[in-house]
């Protein structure tokens, strides 16, 4: 009972304020189209709140997953990734102190990468979904394209204001590394590294909802 009262007090006060977390998508792409992807979700900035939520059974009508359920879900993703032809070196890490979760793997080509990325966005099996391609790479023209067809603003309208507030300070960072130098990038917010072989794009979810920025990009590498 005391634990419950404590949680209620802690949450009722902390939930008046926004929470924040960051998603980091890192891809190292070789000239032949193979590469490595690393997806990180970092909730460390909101760890007090997340720790408190983890002690509850439900929050805002949602069931709060237990630690073992989170681990099980990540294990399921890892198992699914391992079953994809062209995926190798699958690794993962979980940190329930800072609430940082990472999954990475090597992919044989960009088609495989598209299957991999689906596991971070939906629960469907990657093999079953082939239509929605998030990435494309043309070896001949050396053009790498990151698309983003999800209408975040429309989806946000479907959830309550309270739930939307949780995403207010969230951010998404994409870092793409190449073997060849970058000649041009279409997304004006993206910044090219000093050695010209990496590009970083950091956007807030709020800006994406408001259509101010996007993670879409077309990157032209030097031939």
């Amino acid at each position: 009972m005391k634990k419950y009262i404590f949680n209620v007090v802690l949450l009722s006060i902390s939930f008046l304020f926004t929470s924040c977390f960051e998603v980091v998508e890192e891809i190292s792409l070789n000239d032949n189209g193979s590469g490595n992807i690393s997806m990180t979700i970092n909730l460390s900035r909101s760890k007090t709140k997340v720790s408190s939520i983890m002690l509850m059974d439900t929050i805002n009508g949602y069931k709060v997953p237990k630690k073992r359920e989170v681990e099980k879900h990540i294990q399921e993703i890892v198992t699914a990734l391992k079953s994809i032809k062209g995926v190798s070196n699958v690794k993962y890490s979980t940190d329930f102190t800072d609430f940082i979760f990472n999954v990475s793997c090597d992919f044989a080509n960009v088609d495989v990468l598209n299957k991999v990325i689906l596991h971070f966005t939906t629960r469907n099996q990657a093999n079953a979904v082939t239509n929605s391609k998030q990435f494309s790479y043309n070896k001949n023209t050396k053009t790498f394209v990151r698309t983003y067809k999800y209408n975040l603003a429309r989806e946000m309208q479907k959830i309550s204001k309270k739930d939307r507030a949780v995403l207010r300070d969230a951010s998404i960072t994409t870092i793409y590394r190449f073997q060849s130098p970058i000649a041009m990038s279409k997304n004006k917010v993206a910044r090219i590294s000093k050695n010209k072989k990496a590009i970083m794009l950091s956007v807030s979810v709020k800006e994406m909802i408001n259509h101010k920025t996007n993670i879409k990009n077309t990157i032209q590498l030097k031939k």
């Binding site: 007090v9 304020f17 970092n42 800072d98 990496a198 590009i199």
Partner: peptide, 24 residues
């Protein structure tokens, strides 16, 4: 809390930062 810093070539490394949080 733990976050990341990036060098000039966007190589990522973990850093510990602090922030103020309103708590009862």
């Amino acid at each position: 809390y733990t976050t990341y810093k990036y060098d000039e070539n966007y190589k990522r490394s973990k850093v510990t930062k602090t922030k103020d949080e309103t708590l009862p």
